[in-house]
């Protein structure tokens, strides 16, 4: 558990949208940072899985974006922001198995329509703010 923090710690990452191989680098780094801060392993696991799914989504759908992770006394907050195509129907996108990912993504082991539902499953709070043609911002929180 985190000791009392005077101010929340903020980590900032650029997610490269052109390189599927490097997708997930930010999540790996966050995992390391949280470990160094002494956060409990279950929280680290939930944060890193949710962020990793989000990062993969950003690379598949939105040509990358930016990720911000805010570590406070009570929770770890993850904010993923992209300027991709946006999500026309969020309710549909949240259904397990619904995917708009191209076939080549499936051959890489993703695109099963599990990303967004999984992000919700592993976090205590998730909000999607999306405008078609403008982009998507996803905010997630994992409480200690």
């Amino acid at each position: 558990m985190v000791n009392y923090m005077a101010e929340p710690l903020v980590f900032h990452f650029e997610v490269d949208g052109d390189n599927f191989t490097s997708a997930g680098q930010a999540s790996v780094q966050v995992k390391k940072n949280l470990r160094e801060l002494g956060i409990d392993p279950e929280t680290i696991r939930r944060v890193s899985i949710a962020m990793y799914e989000g990062e993969i989504n950003m690379v598949i759908h939105a040509h990358g974006g930016v990720a911000e992770v805010i570590v406070s006394d009570e929770s770890v907050e993850i904010i993923l922001k992209d300027t991709g195509p946006g999500i026309p129907n969020i309710e549909q996108a949240m259904q397990e198995g619904f995917s708009t990912a191209p076939d080549n993504v499936r051959s890489l082991g993703f695109g099963a329509g599990m990303g967004l539902p999984n992000m919700k499953r592993y976090t205590d709070y998730m909000h999607i703010d999306s405008v078609v043609g403008v982009g998507t911002t996803i905010t997630m929180k994992v409480n200690y």
Partner: peptide, 24 residues
Amino acid sequence: DMMSDVLAYVKEQAVLMTGLVNAQ
């Protein structure tokens, strides 16, 4: 071979067997 499923359903398994080969 479906990493999406591994991320969604796997819990506390310490070994992953797969025929998929990429960094993910």
